[in-house]
Design a protein around this nucleic acid. Structure first.
Lengths: 214, 214
DNA sequence: GGCGGAGGTCAACGATCGATGACAACGAGC
DNA sequence: GCTCGTTGTCATCGATCGTTGACCTCCGCC
């Protein structure tokens, strides 16, 4: 917090944008990018306006000119459901691959944390928790569940969301050893073994979940 | 934060312990109980020493007499792996039931949050993250993985931990609608469908995971 | 050339934080 | 009854927080 006064955020890189007189839009988006990173990494309470503005290379007062308050800035970078849109169009037997890709690709947590982590690490904020729950409900127990056959479609859809969340957390935030070292192929293989069982209705009494139908 | 000056923590209830001159041990444990609740609910940054001490019915200065610092208090109530000990002795085909019980029983999040949530909501604290990772590695990719047959035992064990974590989070912290309303039986049923696939090595090429061996 | 407004900095505010040390109230032992 | 260690309170410190308003600096326009 001492020698970190380096500007971490002129890497939007569209135009050189010399030291003075940037455009307001650029500064706004730089603040949002810095806020997403700080909120995601340190949570709402742990990220200060001064640090965020420092990352963006501007003064803290600009946050209040462009957003009005810390809460408004937080809300403007909170997670949206867009990252799940592609899941809704993936064939069910490719969901495991999608999950594997979701928890693998994208920038690592050191650069840009998952939007989910931002909510989690800010879970003292009840509005963030509520919004997260509503988003999950709309995407998973809402639209995704419609594609599932068998009983308790909403519950199974939310279990998928839970496993997606847990796997993403473990791999990208906590980096437990085996998950951190796992190849995408191995990860997808074992994700498939579990997710297939979850998404496909059972067809035999023993709890068999094989997609071959036994 | 205003009218909440009620004493939430003389419910240790062993002896009446009149208003003055409690035993040091009682006060210490009252502080730890209040700290576990506050840290778990609001995270490290969101829980103040004054609030914790207020919940315990004592002055904030006592935290420093008994623990030395806020960090030491946090460390003393951080999660230990004891809550997973019983899992290590559960037969593999009862793991789903154990997980269902883990994410169902115990006090609801409003009363006492899971120790895991304390770490998650304080995940800006690198030492807490590190300790959590080490604990998971020791319990799951360490001891639990030894019981698994088939390839990638450590990875599959950590995936189980990830799903346990995700399911617990969704059900107890975020309370997504279907998971919040689910019966233990329905939850266990669908957990079993997925976990069985994860824990049992596959025996046919199509990805079949049925324990009946097909 | 001067001017107005937009982009940005600066200093300061009240509040709250973690932390410290002096001090009061009480009980056990002599 | 006096003392001394334990238990707990109180006032306060310096730092940092979110937030605000005054001020500065530069560019485009008349």
């Amino acid at each position: 917090m001492d020698g970190s006064r380096v500007k971490a955020k002129d890497d939007t890189g569209e135009r050189p944008a010399r030291a003075r007189k940037n455009s307001a839009a650029d500064t706004r988006s730089a603040l949002m990018a810095a806020a997403a990173l700080r909120f995601g990494r340190y949570g709402y309470d742990g990220a200060s306006i001064r640090d965020i503005a420092g990352d963006a290379g501007v003064d803290a007062a600009l946050v209040y000119r462009y957003f009005g308050s810390k809460e408004a800035l937080f809300a403007s970078v909170s997670m949206d459901t867009a990252i799940f849109d592609s899941l809704l169009e993936v064939p069910l037997d490719e969901v495991a691959a999608w999950v594997s890709d979701f928890v693998t690709n994208g920038p690592p947590d050191e650069e840009i944390p998952h939007p989910v982590l931002s909510v989690l690490r800010s879970s003292s904020r009840e509005d963030a928790v509520r919004q997260f729950r509503d988003n999950v409900a709309e995407v998973f127990s809402g639209r995704f569940a419609e594609r599932l056959e068998g009983p308790d479609a909403e519950l199974r859809a939310e279990l998928l969301a839970a496993w997606l969340l847990g796997t993403s957390l473990m791999r990208k935030a906590f980096r437990t050893p085996a998950l951190d070292a796992a190849t995408t192929a191995a990860l997808e293989s074992h994700l498939r073994a579990g997710i297939t069982g979850l998404l496909n209705p059972r067809t035999c009494e023993c709890g068999c979940t094989c997609p071959c139908g036994v």
